[in-house]
Simulated scan of single mutants.
Amino acid sequence: MSIVQLPSTRSYWNLNLNHRLVSEVMSCNRWEDIKRFLHFNSNIYMIPSGNPGNDKLYKIRPLLNKLRERLLKVPKEEYLAIDEQIIPTKARSSLKQYNPKKPP
């Protein structure tokens, strides 16, 4: 779904636009059930946006914490090389960071 982008998720099961790689794996109803019931954090304690203490990644924070915890357990090599690649995008995200030194 991230490679072939259609206007809505239901379009992947549309008979005219049928994408076999998606529609043969699971039904549209099953996909929507998984999306609806998959939660990593309770919405009860979520602080609404605009209020102090709001976490934009609140809903997936437990997953991120667990992933970070596991990645910190990976043994480190003696020599580490960190390469950061800046990829141009026109996507709109409030998580992006302004970098005045990025290459044109």
Rank of each mutant, 00 (worst) to 15 (best):
L63V: 10
L15S: 11
I82M: 01
G50W: 01
P88E: 14
K73Q: 14
D83S: 06
E77W: 04
L17K: 11
F37H: 08
S93G: 14
P7D: 04
R68S: 12
I60Y: 02
S11W: 01
E69Y: 12
L17Y: 06
M46G: 00
V4N: 07
I34Q: 02
Y98A: 11
A91T: 15
I82Q: 02
N14C: 08
S93T: 13
E84F: 13
N16D: 05
S93W: 02
R20I: 05
W13L: 12
Y98I: 12
K35N: 12
N18V: 10
L63H: 09
S23R: 07
E32K: 13
K102W: 02
L38I: 06
E69C: 11
I82L: 05
N54I: 01
W13Y: 09
E78S: 11
R92A: 10
S23A: 08
C28L: 14
K96T: 14
L21T: 00
N54H: 13
P104W: 01
I3A: 08
L95P: 04
K59C: 04
S11D: 09
Y98G: 03
M26C: 15
S11T: 11
L15W: 02
L67A: 15
L72P: 07
K59R: 12
E32V: 07
N14L: 02
Y45K: 15
R30T: 15
T89M: 05
N99D: 13
S27V: 04
M46T: 14
S94G: 08
K101Y: 06
S27W: 00
N54K: 07
A81S: 03
R20P: 00
V25S: 00
N51P: 00
E69G: 07
N43E: 15
P52L: 00
Y98N: 04
I60E: 06
I86Q: 07
L64D: 08
